[in-house]
Structures are given as structure tokens and as C-alpha cells.
């Protein structure tokens, strides 16, 4: 499960070719909002050409333009035969998901960014090709004509709602990006809040946000050390259940420790 999803503008070669240097678990090569309307074709070709020639050690998603944009089908076919991890679908709704699922074989990460989509979240996320959900708070608050604030009170309920939906369907919930580039303290507070409400990862619009997001959404050093001790004791005793630090440790807890260590290895912390 990826902790960080970094947006990379799809028409900017210098950023595309460094996409795997920023240490995010996943990148989203963007053909939508970061690309000028007159360069959608150029971005599409650039992303295709790059992915056909290079591949870094990071999950790669492509944010295509929305289903009504006129670029949708060309975006999908530009990268469908390449080794990507999935599409990010903006302005997601159940019909758009169906349309994309018909047009491609890759996993789909919808962006929930309008009120109806929030209400339809369960229907959107339950689709078998959908592998999680991303909250798009900028567009959502713009649609509702409410202020987007740094403490996020206006999206608090939506975060909780999407967390519930995603957890019920056992799929990742990826929080909205922090948009104040130089305010890392604000990012830390925002990311902690999202995590505490049940987000499993967070999108980012700047590479300098990635390290903090990875730290906050990954297992902590102490959690890793505890898991290591549980696994060590488990292999030592060979019993199904045992005591450690005065607590009863049984198979589900050992399994959880195993998954945490696997995640830590994946995140390069072990």
C-alpha cells in the first residue's frame, strides 16, 4: 500500500525523467490540470514516449482527462499497452468508472471531487477495477463555494466518510494534497489529521512534501522494532500463542507483524 502519490506535470520533461528520484512510493503522471489545454496532445505523447523507454522503481499512475473532456479516449489508448500501475480518473462518478473500465484493463484510482461523487463513493469504490480512492478537496470546496482552509474543518466529514467507505471495501483511501508548498509544518498537521481519520496515504503536489508524507503514513521505527521482536519470539517459541511484555500474542497479531515488516521492507526501512 503506497504512502505517497506525487503528481508530476505531464508536459515537463525535467520532472518526468526525475520522477523516481523524489522517493515517493507512487507517482501520478498528469495529463489533466497541470497541462495547458493547447498542449494536451504534447503531454500525452511525452508521457507515452517516456514510459516506453524508461521505468523507475516506483508505482506509475497516469491521470487522464475526465470522461467528458474530449481527450479521454486518446489519453487511455496512449498508455494502455504500457507497464503502468493504473489510471487516475478525475471527476469520477459511477458512469465514468464504467466507461473507463470498458476502455482499459488497468486498475483505476478515482478522484472524488464533487458533492455527488462523495455521496456515490460506495458505488464508485466497490467496482472491481477500482483499487482505492483519492480525495480532491480543492475542486470539491470550489464546487460547493466554500472556503478551503488549513485546518480542514470543511472537509472533515468528507474525509471520515471516504475513510469509512474505503475501509469497508478494504481499499486504500488517499488524502487530498497539501497545496502550500513552503509550509511543511502545515503539511505535517494536515497529514497527521488525515491519517488519524483513516487515510492510508496522501497525494502530493511538490517533491519536498514526500519525505514527511512517507514518515507519517509509514510504520514508525518503534512499530517496526516491536514487530521484529514479535516475529523473533514467534519463531523462537514455535507455539501458536505466547506471552511478550506481559501481553498475549496470538496468530492474528503475528500475521499483522509479518505484514508490517513486509511493508517496512517495501518502504526501504529494512
Amino acid at each position: 500500500m503506497s504512502r505517497s502519490y506525487l503528481f508530476i506535470p505531464g508536459n515537463t520533461p525535467s520532472m518526468i525523467q526525475s520522477h523516481d528520484v523524489y522517493d515517493s512510493d507512487a507517482v501520478i503522471l498528469d495529463l489533466e490540470d497541470s497541462v495547458a489545454v493547447y498542449d494536451k496532445d504534447a503531454a500525452r505523447e511525452l508521457v507515452r514516449s517516456f514510459l516506453a523507454a524508461h521505468r523507475g522503481n516506483v508505482e506509475v499512475f497516469v491521470r487522464i482527462n475526465d470522461v467528458d473532456s474530449g481527450h479521454f479516449h486518446r489519453d487511455v489508448s496512449a498508455v494502455d499497452d504500457l507497464a503502468i500501475n493504473g489510471y487516475v480518473l478525475p471527476k469520477a462518478n459511477p458512469q465514468a468508472i464504467d466507461a473507463l473500465a470498458k476502455a482499459c484493463n488497468h486498475p483505476i484510482l478515482p478522484i472524488i471531487e464533487d458533492p455527488q461523487a462523495v455521496l456515490d463513493a460506495y458505488a464508485i469504490v466497490r467496482h472491481p477495477q477500482v483499487k482505492g480512492a483519492i480525495l480532491g478537496a480543492e475542486d470539491l470546496t470550489k464546487e460547493m463555494m466554500i472556503e478551503r482552509t488549513s485546518d480542514g474543518i470543511e472537509i472533515h466529514h468528507v474525509r471520515s466518510h471516504l475513510a469509512l467507505v474505503c475501509h469497508a471495501l478494504q481499499k486504500p483511501f488517499i488524502d487530498t494534497p497539501w497545496t502550500v508548498v513552503d509550509d511543511l509544518d502545515g503539511l505535517a498537521k494536515d497529514a497527521s489529521l488525515a491519517r488519524s481519520l483513516g487515510a492510508t496515504g496522501k497525494a502530493a503536489i511538490h517533491p519536498n512534501h514526500v519525505a514527511l508524507i512517507n514518515d507519517l503514513f509509514g510504520p514508525s521505527e518503534s512499530a517496526i522494532r516491536d514487530a521484529e521482536r514479535i516475529l523473533a519470539k514467534a519463531s523462537e517459541t514455535g507455539k501458536g500463542a505466547f506471552r511478550l511484555d506481559g501481553k498475549m500474542i496470538d496468530e492474528p497479531i503475528v500475521e499483522k507483524a509479518r505484514r508490517l515488516i513486509a511493508a517496512a521492507a517495501r518502504y526501504n526501512k529494512r
Binding site: 528520484v21 522517493d23 519536498n208 519525505a211
Partner: peptide, 11 residues
């Protein structure tokens, strides 16, 4: 530097 590449090299 706050350039992401420079940040990464420093870290």
C-alpha cells in the same frame, strides 16, 4: 537549496 534534486542529494 530547496530544489528537490538538491534536497535529495543533501539528505
Amino acid at each position: 537549496t530547496t530544489h528537490p534534486i538538491g534536497v535529495r542529494i543533501a539528505s
